[in-house]
Computed example of a mutant assay.
Amino acid sequence: MNTFKKLSAPRSLGSTLLSIVIIVFIAYILEDVVVPFLFAALLSFLLVPITQYLENHRIPRVIAILISIVLIIAIIGGVMYAAYTQVIKLQDLFPQIEKRFNEWISALASLLSNFDIDKQQLIAEGQKHISDAVKSGSQFLGATIGGTSNFLMSIALLPLYIFLMLMYRDFLKTFVFKWLKDTSKHKIVTTINKVKSVVRGYITGLVLVILIIGTLNSTALYFIGIDHALFFGFFAAFLAIIPYIGVALGSALPILVALITQDSYLAAVMVAASFAVIQFLEGNFITPYVVGNQVSINALIAITALLLFGKLWGIGGMILALPMTAILKVIFDANPRTEAWGFLLGDAENEDVKHVTKYFRFKEFFETVKKRI
């Protein structure tokens, strides 16, 4: 018997690896279908309490689902429209960019004039490249807006997916019971409830983090005197969806704008310093206690998942990386055979942060705010 187990283990491992490769390949090929479907599943988990509340007040399920979908579309549409109007206004910065780069080239030409370099030719060549760069920037901005529109068109079926998932949620639960008939219904229901809790806690916590970080960023940029402070502040906050590197990437743009639009380099230094402080607060205090223990994924797994999902599905994959990994952790924890993998994905509680923050009662404050959202 032991010999048989030794011989069958490599076959089992090989079958598992082959299954993973096939699943990843199919997910890559069917990106346009899979990614909207997963986003719809996450939003459906978020909308279930709303539809249940409406149904409990004797509103038919179809009407309750339609009201929930219209509500979420209105919120997302409002945010997208506000972002669109701000992006359009960024075109006003291109003349300032061209002017500042011309000044830098003139200063560089004066500095290099002592090295027997034709100053006028250097300025002419520099201005030519700057004009080309500004034109390319305008074209890129237009392409970005067009690309965003194409992306929105590719997920046009999202409301339909959400509607059907909410409509047939009882049917899908019955399917899971039949599929896992050897598992107790209590355990299945407990696992499903944990998945719902993870998804809702992550999404609501993430929205609250974006609001807090965006407000802090915008306030700092406003007092420093950076144009379009609201856009740059919330753009950096939105990139917080991408863990660990999102805030750093979001801070690069306002620093560059400060260098271009301000007469002193002090403004860029102040932007960098303020964003560094906000990033420290976000990483050590705000996110851990707003999102809480709902997504308890260790840093190594989070970064790995971020890179893998990003390579697989691009920006959509990077957004899905953490919630999907957290859902996998819940599923792994529920099965004794995969419990070790769930442990590998998890994160030990940071006692140092817990010791410091207990004096500031951050957790109680954020939990109160989350319950009122």
Results as ranks from 00 to 15, higher is better:
N2P: 13
L7W: 10
S12D: 00
S15A: 05
S19Q: 01
I20C: 03
V21S: 09
V21I: 09
V24W: 11
Y28A: 12
F37Q: 14
F39N: 10
A41W: 15
L42T: 15
L43P: 10
L43W: 07
F45H: 14
F45Q: 10
P49L: 07
Y53C: 10
L54Q: 06
I59Q: 09
A64G: 09
A64P: 04
I67S: 05
S68L: 08
V70F: 11
I76C: 13
L90I: 12
D92Y: 04
L93T: 09
F94Y: 10
F94V: 06
E98M: 02
R100Q: 11
F101Y: 02
A107D: 09
A107N: 14
L108F: 01
A109T: 02
A109M: 04
A109F: 02
Q127R: 07
K128W: 09
D132H: 00
D132A: 01
Q139V: 11
F140E: 11
L141Y: 11
G142H: 07
I145Y: 03
N150Y: 10
L152K: 14
P159F: 09
L160Q: 15
K173Y: 10
F177L: 06
K178E: 00
W179C: 05
I192V: 13
V198C: 05
I203K: 05
L211V: 03
G214Q: 00
T215D: 00
N217T: 04
L221P: 08
I226G: 03
D227P: 11
H228P: 02
A229D: 08
L230H: 03
A237K: 00
L239D: 01
I241C: 00
P243V: 11
L249C: 10
S251Y: 05
V257F: 03
Q262E: 08
D263P: 07
Y265Q: 01
L266C: 01
L266I: 06
L266Q: 10
M270V: 06
S274P: 07
S274M: 06
A276W: 12
I278G: 01
F280P: 05
L281S: 06
L281Y: 04
E282K: 05
P288G: 09
P288R: 04
Y289K: 08
V291Y: 01
G292N: 03
N293R: 14
Q294C: 08
L308N: 14
L312C: 12
G314S: 06
L320D: 06
A321W: 07
L328W: 08
F332P: 10
T338Q: 02
E339K: 15
D347P: 03
D347F: 12
A348T: 14
E351N: 11
V353W: 08
H355C: 01
V356M: 09
V356Y: 09
T357A: 14
F360T: 14
V369W: 11
K370F: 04
I373L: 08
